[in-house]
Design a protein around this nucleic acid. Structure first.
Lengths: 341, 341
DNA sequence: TACATATTTGAAAGCGCTTTGGAAGCCATT
DNA sequence: AATGGCTTCCAAAGCGCTTTCAAATATGTA
């Protein structure tokens, strides 16, 4: 059933039927109702590809999903998607997801954009000096970045959390508790949030004349295995750190296992603060020792970005181009005063 | 840059350029190379919406993502998606994801199908007597179901794991270890896998003249919170169960917390077997007491289903319509002989 | 040389929708 | 009766591609 058939059935032109459906004013209310009733009866649905071709819009936002054999799926991605979806469903928007090798993201994003089946783009996993920004700006397609790109002019639309402040504040808390030997378990070094969180920590330490040692820093993918390995390394250090900042509750999961294995007590021998993306699976309050965290909901960010993206496409708005969300510092039992040794 | 412009640039007809690009044989190799070079230089990409409209195919597979405010995002979904993506990227396929309220899945699926921008459908979260099957069959669009629908004629294409055998075998192991008091922590009761796993357990118990008590059965969404609550209930029972079957490592996470809280020992006082979807985040071997599991990789299932779906669209094949994967029963430390009381 | 047969190219139709530019009908006003 | 302004509808063009059918050119055969 297509427009032509429907209009013949009704004895109307395609034009009129199309207008009736899309809420144009220049159509008699009586005929509009007749059309609407026929649509109900026949189950007619407009072909989106044709709509897209005719209008240039199709109610979809595009994003690239990094994937490869052996590439571990990322809980954060799923959680963020849930947020996008929650908002998209309200506007009858859908997603076009292009899976791509992580090394091929720029090209994949371009393909997605010129493919002509998305109205707007969402970009994540931002890096320092991210090469995608220049491409996006040349594209004349709306986009919003989750995160920022350290070292690039901040003249693009983004939503980010204040990673630097988060880890600065976290470090300050630990400093006030008397800690002086710090370690950082971070995400991959090229990612923007990792750069900023490290900077935040270094800034706080610097104010006290302290430094972050290289052997007390790890940059890895954020899995519990890597957390375990990194923490084991820290614990073997002659002068082992007592204060740990951790970029994810996933890393913390492994880290805590390492702490338990050597019989140390979290919150007493070792203080740890992790960043909490509010993953449904890893609630900091459910850890055997509840975790002190810097918190910001990934899902909420997804909702907000979808709002901005969809709003831009639908030309409602305007929206702020740049948003920087503060994180909350939530103190639980995994932090305590520096142990007397 | 579109086909018309490109062909004018080359002094060729759109026909020839189109054929050159799509690998048709009736075009001179020399001109084909000329076209290909021009494409490289201009960065021309065909408009997918137009392609879709013209051919009816667009290299995409569609799926519905259940979502709603307050609806917890599902790790399983993300992991499965990673599997689909891993295969899709090899064939330059993408996904169209339609977010939908869980109560609206049938309608959402239909919208997605008639929208005309997917070539094939993937369906998950199967229920007993699933209403989507009839709709799908009437649709004449290829689809593959992950799971099955208990109570429906199995005449549709699916890939499932043998849930019944998995829990039957798991129960048998525990029976051999002398356990007689069983409990089941299952997923939502209307879901197919939950029905079959329960049946598997009941069958194994039945062979020994045992029954599964109602107050030793829980059907909940699979979160660690629910796991905790269910296990707390079990443990307060006057004649508390010693053998637990658990439909997910996520549930097990909470269950184990409950066990620890009351000071019982997993693998001694309580034996537990969980089903393991091989989530990167929840490795059974990393639990403080490594978990005995029935294992089957969700991601591998995603890869396989993508293969079948894409193969069907591309008309390579044929593929088996029905696949039933065996799970592996992997014994670790969370199971032991029934405690002497 | 003339003819049949491959090989290579092109004109145009069509996919299902939106939208421009009229046209027809109706009413009130001159 | 003629004019103008509304309201309501329609024919047809166009979105960017594929594909059918036909034409042009090259190649082989008698």
């Amino acid at each position: 059933m297509n427009l032509k058939q429907l209009s013949e059935l009704l004895g109307l032109s395609q034009t009129t039927v199309s207008r009736a459906l899309n809420g144009y004013p220049e159509v008699n209310e009586a005929t509009r109702e007749r059309v609407l009733r026929a649509v109900k009866e026949t189950g007619y649905r407009p072909n989106k590809a044709a709509q897209r071709l005719a209008t240039g819009k199709a109610g979809s936002i595009g994003l690239v999903m990094p994937t490869a054999p052996g590439h571990q799926s990322d809980v954060h991605f799923g959680e963020f998607l849930a947020g996008l979806g929650e908002e998209a469903v309200r506007h009858d928007f859908h997603f076009v997801i292009m899976p791509a090798d992580p090394d091929d993201e720029v090209a994949a994003l371009r393909r997605l954009a010129i493919s002509g089946n998305v109205d707007a783009l969402f970009v994540a996993y931002m890096r320092g000096h991210d090469p995608r920004l220049a491409m996006l700006k040349s594209l004349s397609m709306p986009f919003v970045v989750h995160g920022r790109s350290f070292g690039s002019e901040p003249d693009y639309p983004y939503l980010d959390i204040d990673n630097e402040a988060a880890f600065y504040d976290a470090a300050r808390l630990l400093l006030q508790l008397g800690h002086t030997r710090f370690a950082l378990m971070n995400g991959p070094a090229h990612l923007d949030f990792a750069i900023r969180r490290r900077n935040g920590l270094i800034a706080a330490l610097g104010e006290r004349g302290l430094e972050l040692a290289d052997d007390c820093t790890s940059h890895t993918v954020m899995t519990d295995e890597e957390g375990l390995i990194a923490m084991e390394r820290f614990l073997q250090l002659p002068d082992r750190p007592t204060a740990i900042l951790c970029s994810s509750t996933v890393l913390a999961l492994g880290a805590i296992r390492a702490v338990n294995q050597v019989g140390l007590k979290l919150g007493e021998d070792i203080s740890l603060i992790a960043h909490d993306d509010v993953l449904p699976l890893l609630k900091p309050e459910n850890f055997s020792v509840p975790l002190t965290t810097t918190r910001s909901s990934l899902r909420a960010a997804g909702v907000r970005i979808a709002q901005r993206l969809i709003g831009t496409v639908k030309q409602v708005g305007p929206f702020p181009e740049q948003e920087l969300w503060k994180t909350e510092l939530i103190v639980r039992a995994s932090t305590g005063p520096v142990p007397q040794s």
